[in-house]
């Protein structure tokens, strides 16, 4: 009987953490409701791929990454391998810092403790430094080192991507302002 109990406990501790906790549409509803987020793409240029690969320590696959936005808030859903299988992580970035991180799916038998809010709360308000590192220390979890590392990589990458989107938008805004100025000048100079 005692053996059965021990076996059941061991089984539950390794399998209960695995699974899909939330789908992407559900996560987006949680973040943006009642608003409807705008879906957009960030195209991964060779330079961006190189900097992203440095952050996650392996080549980035894909030509574009999908994200969702509303005002200054962007949401990124990415996968990163903890030990052998990918962890699906949702990151909400608002005004250049992390507003929320949520583990949407965890597929490995160990390290699922990263899904607890007590752990993910550490990322709230964290920003990215000019060296593409998080500006705050993240406490690890014993026995979940690789999962913690994966979450931190994705958090950094999401901030990096958000930065790229913001920079590209401000560049576009500046260009528009310059064009507007030039056209106004032409109008005033005209006889």
């Amino acid at each position: 009987m005692a053996l059965l109990l021990v076996a059941a406990l061991l089984f539950s501790s390794t399998t209960l953490g695995k699974g899909v906790y939330q789908t992407v549409p559900e996560f987006l509803t949680e973040i943006f409701a009642p608003e409807e987020p705008q879906q957009d793409y960030l195209w991964l240029t060779p330079e961006l791929k190189a900097s992203a690969s440095e952050i996650i320590n392996h080549p980035v696959r894909g030509l574009r990454i999908r994200y969702w936005r509303s005002d200054e808030k962007t949401v990124w859903v990415m996968e990163e391998i903890g030990k052998e299988l990918p962890i699906t992580i949702g990151v909400v970035v608002s005004q250049d810092n992390i507003e929320k991180i949520k583990i949407l799916a965890f597929r490995e038998s160990r390290g699922w403790e990263v899904r607890y809010a007590a752990f993910t709360a550490q990322y709230q308000g964290v920003k990215i430094t000019p060296y593409n590192k998080l500006d705050s220390h993240i406490d690890g979890i014993t026995g979940a080192t690789l999962s913690v590392r994966a979450v931190t990589k994705v958090a950094t990458l999401a901030l990096h991507y958000h930065q790229q989107v913001s920079q590209s938008e401000s560049k576009q805004a500046r260009n528009k302002q310059t064009q507007d100025k030039e056209s106004n000048q032409l109008v005033t100079e005209a006889p």
Partner: peptide, 16 residues
């Protein structure tokens, strides 16, 4: 995939 075989994106079951 694009015509050169480069991965553009993957849509998994979690994403719809």
């Amino acid at each position: 995939l694009n015509p050169d075989g480069e991965l553009v994106e993957k849509l998994d079951k979690l994403s719809g």
